[in-house]
């Protein structure tokens, strides 16, 4: 299938990626080629949908006991942060509320 410019923009927004106009054009072209190639899957006779990895599993899942362990020291938790304020991660102001 041919990906339109709008589709690429939409997908980039979903993926939180900003693209330059050149990138947009380039990726639209390349992704269209890949999708064309990938589309010959449609020629196959397929088993009923819904099967996926682990479908065959039937043994009860071993679970983890509810025993707390010490967390990492706060300095370590923040050690890789690009920006922080006191014990918080710091980000540019969030304007929109909720999700």
């Amino acid at each position: 299938m041919k990906l339109t410019h709008d589709q690429v923009t939409h997908v980039a927004r979903l993926a939180s990626l900003s693209l330059t106009p050149e990138e947009e054009a380039h990726f639209a072209e390349e992704l269209s080629q890949i999708l064309d190639y990938v589309e010959n899957l449609n020629r196959l006779m397929l088993p009923p949908p819904g099967l996926h990895v682990g479908d065959g599993v039937s043994d009860p899942t071993p679970l983890h006991p509810d025993i707390p362990r010490p967390s990492v020291p706060v300095e370590e938790a923040l050690s890789n942060a690009p920006d922080r304020s006191g014990q918080f991660f710091r980000v540019p102001r969030i304007l929109e509320e909720g999700r």
Partner: peptide, 16 residues
């Protein structure tokens, strides 16, 4: 936010 590269261009969270 928590680790890794951060663009210095951003002034709001979406741009970040």
């Amino acid at each position: 936010v928590r680790y890794g590269y951060r663009s210095l261009k951003a002034s709001n969270i979406r741009d970040l």
